[in-house]
Amino acid sequence: MKLIAFAAALAVAGTAAAQDMPMPAAPAAPAATPTGDDPVGGYQPATPPMPTPPQPGATIVFQQAPAPDVAYPAPAPMAQYPICKKGQYDNCRQRGG
């Protein structure tokens, strides 16, 4: 078995054969001309991402975001929780607890 592995290693480690043909050149990039479905201006949005700046003297109001427990309140507790079954971890209680 060791002899077979040694022979395979020698075969793989042999000298590499030189290439006779040169590598083909990479194809040229396609022209950037719009085709049937491509919009003329590209895929950028038609409207600017930010609204126009406010006029001088305009009142800007900064408002603090609500706390996470107010923005995303917890669900109401259930009236009664059943005993957990095998593999169940939510909406149940441990046996003997």
Rank of each mutant, 00 (worst) to 15 (best):
A32T: 01
I83Y: 15
A7C: 14
K85S: 12
T15K: 07
P34F: 14
A67H: 10
A18I: 04
P27W: 14
Q64H: 09
T59E: 13
P53Y: 01
L3T: 15
T33M: 03
D69R: 13
A58S: 09
C92L: 15
K85D: 12
T35L: 13
Y72C: 05
Y81H: 00
R95F: 14
A16M: 09
I83E: 13
P34S: 01
R95G: 15
A67C: 01
G97M: 06
D69E: 12
P48T: 07
K2C: 03
F62K: 09
A31D: 11
A13N: 00
L10G: 05
A11T: 02
P53H: 01
P39I: 05
A16F: 02
Q44D: 03
A5C: 09
I4A: 12
D38W: 03
A26R: 13
A32N: 08
A29Y: 07
Q80S: 12
G41F: 09
P51T: 01
P68Y: 03
T35S: 11
T59S: 10
M1R: 00
I83P: 04
L10Y: 06
G57H: 04
K2S: 00
G14M: 01
Y89K: 14
D38F: 02
P56L: 02
C92H: 12
R95T: 08
P82L: 13
G14P: 00
P53F: 07
P48V: 04
A71N: 09
K85H: 11
Q88V: 13
A13D: 02
G36C: 05
L10D: 01
R93Q: 15
M23E: 03
P82C: 08
A8S: 11
V12Y: 07
Y81P: 03
A31T: 11
D20W: 03
T15P: 07
A11H: 10
M50K: 10
V61R: 05
T33C: 13
G96Q: 11
P53K: 03
P45D: 04
V40M: 13
Q63L: 12
P24L: 09
G57K: 05
Y72S: 07
P49C: 05
